[in-house]
């Protein structure tokens, strides 16, 4: 499987529950991504998205299974996998420059101060924060803080970025600008990105692949939806694409009804071989697992009322 940059292989997460029983958040979860791919995970609150991301980051260990990145099973965190935290997690006693420089000097321990600063400054400029280098996080707006988080993650030139609802606390306008920036940066630098979101339009705009998770406990990865929209899509004219509503309706239908009933209604669901949904495109599809590709075809329905 040389095309798999990231491969999550049969991981499970269990917590000890009340009275000696164990609660299984999810089990036998398989998922893979190729290099340079942008994936979004959508699922209801509590289904285990953050847990999956933390396991990918190495902040949390799975109860079973393994995560293979670039051909090697991970053990713990790595500077190759940068995390953008939902709550930005900036160190309040450091300035903007100090926060980014902390990451830079952690990666390149033998660099001198000037070199660290110059490197950090490049990434501060990249996210459009030039002029605010010497402010502390408390003097920044929510959007600016999130930008610092992005600059910090990018400054260590990771192989992949893990984002846990990075924009959920922002207003629509700031969120839009930051989505544009993250998309531009990821395309330019060829980042592999894994993002959790609750915003369907955000997923449609950013993702190449959308992972749909059912409700927990005992959540499963139900489908991998491939994004049929062209790579050079723009955020503002997304909805003009003929397949946009079909895609959006499919995801929303899943969230509204199928996420609850999926496990009961699909007894033959094979977690190693999750169906790949290709909206409006009948033909060959590659399943997430290896054995036998299954395909699902969604006809491109005409744009209608959406939820």
């Amino acid at each position: 499987m040389s095309d798999k940059f990231i491969s999550i292989e049969g991981i499970a997460k269990r917590y000890p529950g009340a009275g000696g029983a164990t609660t299984t958040i999810f089990e036998n979860l398989w998922l893979s991504m190729t290099r340079g791919e942008f994936a979004c995970v959508i699922g209801h609150s509590g289904c285990g998205k953050t847990t999956v991301l933390n396991i990918l980051a190495g902040l949390d260990a799975p109860s079973e299974g393994a995560v293979i990145v670039d051909g090697q099973a991970i053990s713990g965190t790595s500077l190759d996998r940068a995390v953008i935290f939902q709550s930005h997690a900036l160190l309040p006693w450091r300035t903007v420059l100090g926060n980014v420089a902390y990451a830079v000097s952690s990666k390149w321990r033998n660099w001198d101060r000037a070199k660290v600063r110059a490197h950090a400054q490049t990434f501060i400029d990249l996210v459009g924060l030039s002029g605010s280098e010497h402010k502390r996080p408390s003097e920044l707006s929510g959007g600016m803080k999130q930008r610092v988080g992005i600059a910090r993650a990018l400054s260590i030139t990771p192989k992949m970025m893990l984002m846990d609802e990075p924009f959920s606390a922002l207003d629509a306008l700031t969120r839009g600008t930051l989505q544009d920036e993250v998309r531009r940066i990821c395309l330019e630098t060829g980042q592999t990105a894994f993002m959790i979101t609750h915003d369907v339009d955000e997923a449609i705009y950013l993702a190449d692949k959308i992972f749909l998770m059912t409700n927990g406990p005992g959540a499963v990865l139900a489908e991998v939806v491939e994004n049929p929209l062209p790579r050079d899509r723009g955020r503002t004219d997304l909805h003009r694409h003929p397949l946009y509503y079909a895609l959006r309706n499919h995801i929303i239908d899943f969230l509204v009804t199928r996420s609850k009933t999926f496990v009961a209604e699909t007894p033959g669901h094979d977690p190693r071989n999750v169906p790949v949904v290709q909206i409006g495109k009948p033909g060959l599809s590659i399943a997430a697992g290896s054995d036998e590709p299954r395909q699902t075809w969604m006809p491109g329905t005409s744009p209608g009322l959406s939820a």
Binding site: G58, L59, T77, V83, L91, S106
Partner: peptide
């Protein structure tokens, strides 16, 4: 904050 330090090794 601890997690930030951990991800930065």
């Amino acid at each position: 904050w601890i997690n930030v330090a951990r991800t930065l090794e």
